[in-house]
Nucleic acid binder design. Structure first.
Length: 458
DNA sequence: AATATAGTCAACCGCACCCGC
DNA sequence: TGCGGGTGCGGTTGACTATAT
């Protein structure tokens, strides 16, 4: 037995003692004494019955002993050689999630919570990858934490990510996108396969100004009791508080000291603290409702019979409605989305309706606050800008089926801002987000409206 | 006090990938 | 090249506790 083995055994014994210490009133033990622990499910295997359900301490000990002797891996052999009536998968899971000596127990620290938000914004539901970034934490732990958090935020009508994170992502994405555009502009337009390799550098997040909302966002919001969050007044406070807007945002100008967003009522709504709740279409609260918010709560919560937001159904319609011309797969490999959740031209959520990709799940919520009503002439400007920014765009779009501007059914004067591809692909977020010094791009009203706010972050 | 609802956690399931044969 | 086993990952479920009504 080497030192590591001793360490593992000691740690396990320590945990075992801790576990036993909970016997009197511990929740752990209550759980263990109830339910299927006493009558675990049995599954027939080739060489005997396999047990399912919660693990007992004795089983843990057997598994720990086996792993200390033989090391990790070859999990199916555990059952054969140790006599443990558990399938390999179960053993692996138990080891990875509970018995590993390097596991960190207890609640997530604020720093870890912050990191999880960053990581999720960066890579989506890649729990294992996220766990790799958080030593001592398991993917299951992170997943559970995140799902709980999502539920809470959804119920509260809060966006999943703090605006800073959104902007950073979008900046990074658009910057790379524009680089790609520049590189290929005089040939055949942006190489979409190249875009698949676009990575959002992690350093992006390391440079985040933590005090600008992110740090305060997570713990503060997370600490809000669900019931309290349903109260709108408390809600409004928390939003400004959580996003750190009270100090950063002047509701009478705008976030960054720029003039108000003329001609685009409701834009930047998330940051708009001036959301007198009597404003049905521009109020920050309404615009912040995530797409996944239950529809029936919208009216109840906000007291307005109609919402400018896309309903779940309408989002689904957009997601599932067939491409007008060619399918997405015509121009993107299926693998691309896996490594590149933020591809503005592909967006996994568009295809699969994945509610959990950074710009999928959150797309609805993240972008909900920029759902704008745009007058017809403004729309023209958007389109003009778009075509002007890359002469190849229309041709490419017609080929790919990617429509830079999506209109809502029956609402011809509204851009579908719930769609990240619209925002990104059309250049809305890219106008200044990537710190591209293309001033010509920013001559339109949209550019000045959005670009200024975003650009000032650079 | 009883009931409903939300939150937490552990474990299972199905799928996809990798790798050796 | 195809196949099968092993493994990892993400989604989901179920049991239980905590809190609100």
């Amino acid at each position: 037995m080497n030192c590591l083995t001793y360490k593992i055994v000691i740690i396990h014994l320590f945990r075992h003692i801790q576990e036993m210490g909970k016997i009197t009133n511990g929740r752990e033990d209550n759980k263990r004494s109830k339910g299927h622990r006493d009558s675990p499910a049995i599954e027939e295997a080739s060489n005997g019955p396999l047990k399912k359900g919660p693990w007992t301490s004795a089983e843990d000990a057997v598994l720990v002993d086996y792993v200390t002797k033989h090391g990790e891996g070859n999990w199916n052999a555990v059952q054969k050689h140790s006599g443990l009536s558990r399938c390999g998968k179960s053993c692996r899971l138990r080891w990875a999630n509970h018995l590993r000596p390097d596991l960190k127990k207890g609640a997530f620290t604020p720093e870890e919570e912050r990191r999880i938000i960053e990581l999720h914004a960066n890579m989506g539901n890649k729990w294992a990858r996220m766990a790799a970034e958080l030593p001592g934490r398991t993917d299951n732990e992170i997943k559970n934490y995140w799902n709980t958090r999502i539920k809470r935020l959804q119920r509260a009508g809060l966006p999943i990510y703090p605006p800073e994170v959104c902007l950073k992502i979008l900046n990074g994405s658009q910057e790379s996108q524009n680089i790609g555009t520049l590189q290929t502009a005089d040939t055949h337009g942006p190489d979409l396969t190249q875009m698949d390799h676009l990575e959002i550098p992690e350093a992006e997040f390391k440079n985040l100004e933590l005090n600008q909302g992110l740090l305060s966002y997570s713990p503060t919001v997370l600490d809000i009791p669900a019931s309290s969050m349903l109260k709108q007044d408390y809600f409004s406070e928390k939003i400004t508080e959580s996003f750190g807007m009270s100090s950063q945002y002047d509701s009478h100008t705008n976030t960054y000291g720029q003039p108000p967003l003329g001609g685009l009522p409701g834009s930047h709504a998330l940051l708009n603290d001036n959301s007198s709740s009597s404003e049905p279409s521009c109020g920050a609260m309404k615009l912040e409702l995530p797409s996944l918010q239950y529809l029936d709560t919208q009216q109840d919560s906000w007291g307005t019979p109609t919402s400018p937001l896309l309903s779940l159904e309408s989002v689904d319609t957009l997601i599932h409605s067939p491409p007008t011309e060619q399918t997405q797969s015509d121009f993107l490999s299926p693998r691309s989305s896996e490594n590149y959740p933020l591809n503005p031209y592909k967006t996994e959520w568009e295809v699969h309706g994945d509610p959990n990709s950074p710009l999928g799940h959150s797309a609805a919520s993240v972008f909900s606050h920029v759902l704008l009503s745009v007058e017809a002439h403004q729309m023209n400007q958007v389109r003009l800008f778009y075509t002007a920014s890359s002469s190849d765009e229309p041709a490419r779009n017609s080929q790919s089926g990617f429509n830079p501007i999506h209109f809502r059914q029956g609402s011809s004067n509204q851009i579908d801002f719930m769609r990240p591809d619209v925002l990104l692909g059309s250049g809305w977020f890219g106008l200044g987000g990537g710190c591209i010094n293309d001033q010509s791009v920013r001559t339109d009203s949209v550019g000045s409206a959005f670009g200024d706010a975003v650009n000032s972050e650079c």
